[in-house]
Design a protein around this nucleic acid. Sequence first.
RNA 1: GCGGGAAUAGUGUAGUGGUCAUCACAGGGGCUUCCCAAGCCCUUAACCCGGGUUCGAAUCCCGGUUCCCGCACCA
Length: 486
Amino acid sequence: MLMGEMEDLIELAKRRGFFWQSFSIYGGFSGLYDYGPLGSIIKERVYRAWKDIYMGLGAIEIDTPSLTPDPVLKASGHVDRFIDMAVACTQCRTRYKIESILSDKGVDAVPQNVDEARKLMDGLDLKCTRCGGKLGEPFEHHLMFMIDSQGERMYARPETAQGIFVNFRLLKNYNRDRLPMIVIQQGKGYRNEISPRQAIIRQKEFNMAEVEVFLDPDVNGAFTPTLQEEIHMHDMDGKDHFTTLPQALEKNIIKSPDHAFFLEITYRFAMDIGMDRERLRFRQHRKDELAHYSSDCWDLEARINDSWLEITGISDRGTYDLSRHHGASGEKLYIDGTRFARVIEPASGIDRIIASLLASSMYKRESGYSVLKLKPEIAPYPVALLPLQKKDGLQEKAMEIYGKLKILEPYAYYDDSGAIGRRYARQDEIGTPYCITVDYDTLEKDIVTIRERDSMEQIREVNVDQILSTKGFLNNPVLQAFTVKK
RNA sequence: GCGGGAAUAGUGUAGUGGUCAUCACAGGGGCUUCCCAAGCCCUUAACCCGGGUUCGAAUCCCGGUUCCCGCACCA
């Protein structure tokens, strides 16, 4: 599976500083990755685009701890669902969930600890279904990282969502009791994956961007989709539809207008950061794969290496979480009287978004050199300043302009090494959309050349003052002269 | 976790027991008639970790770590 695109991406990412495996001087550690200098900027930009779109809808943001006490995740159901009792075959070492072994024997029980598991298994004639070997002693299989805090059990959160639910009352107060209420949170999530794979796609510690939309349960359609664009939707029966979201609602492919609206927002976010629409689809979860808290779920998936990868899950969590915390904490989490808010949750995996964005942005020129076709707003450096060569005062002149440019565009990059073509190629590879070249005309007439990445088109004789006329280089009107879209 | 394969400069690689570990690209410096990775010169830089066998190990053996492929797992 990890061929072609991902392989090329991982090589580029390491060489150019997007991401690489963590702690590599100690031999590396499975499932942990660093963002390098360029990756850190892209991550920031992707988060920014996400935040902008939700702030535009009137969202409020919070930031809660990664360390989560045991009772919170007991109430949410994660402790039961994320810690499985398991056994392994003593011969072939295949692991089984005790829960599923028991249900094969007609015993419908979920053991909570090793003793319980042992009792339940006692007397049943259990054998390995693969090799017929004897099964060993039961043990706990943890999917959450457990942390001991002076004898108190905590977990590294498996999702940021619970930090929002437990704050529901305070947030509702803050929001002056108005519904719908949209709360967002970005941060790290942790899962003790048995076999992390494919670089930043499946990690033990990863970046999440989660949104909880609290709705009046008796108001259907506080939000409703409007986007007139045909989108690929793959439903739970495996049928593909190419339809607009308003039509999908009419045709009952998706039931809830509110749910459909947040598919639309998720899609708009993907467009904002420059995802390739040809490589996107929404896929509905089958009943048997729905999470314990979810009644309906649509994933936004991106095609990478010819297979589909979940990048955002838009789940209808109903009243599950609030009612659970209400019961467990004793705190009244109603919206009024006895009604709980209904929750729609668009939860994004930022690392996966970045991986699929980068992979789908890479292409090769005829020359064989690769280009990263990132949107200018997402590219780490929106502009690079390059003197044609170092001598004859060009370097000094370029440094002078660069000094001024840097004040208006902090993410501007400077490079004067080697030949000019090589530097263009270097910028192409990291996705810089524009290069400004300082040449002999600059010395005489104060004019420069701007070159666009994908077309390699140049605008000549641009006045230096014009380059330095806007805060943020991408706002510069001179860029409108390019025939390709900005 | 299981099975198979692999690990050598930043990247991709050559090297099946014996000189200073090969080559290319990338990086740094310089020259050049300098706008798309041109050419020439100089230069930085590597045997995954730990044991063992041996006079001698990048090479053989054992253990570990990591990566890839398949299986299992994936709220």
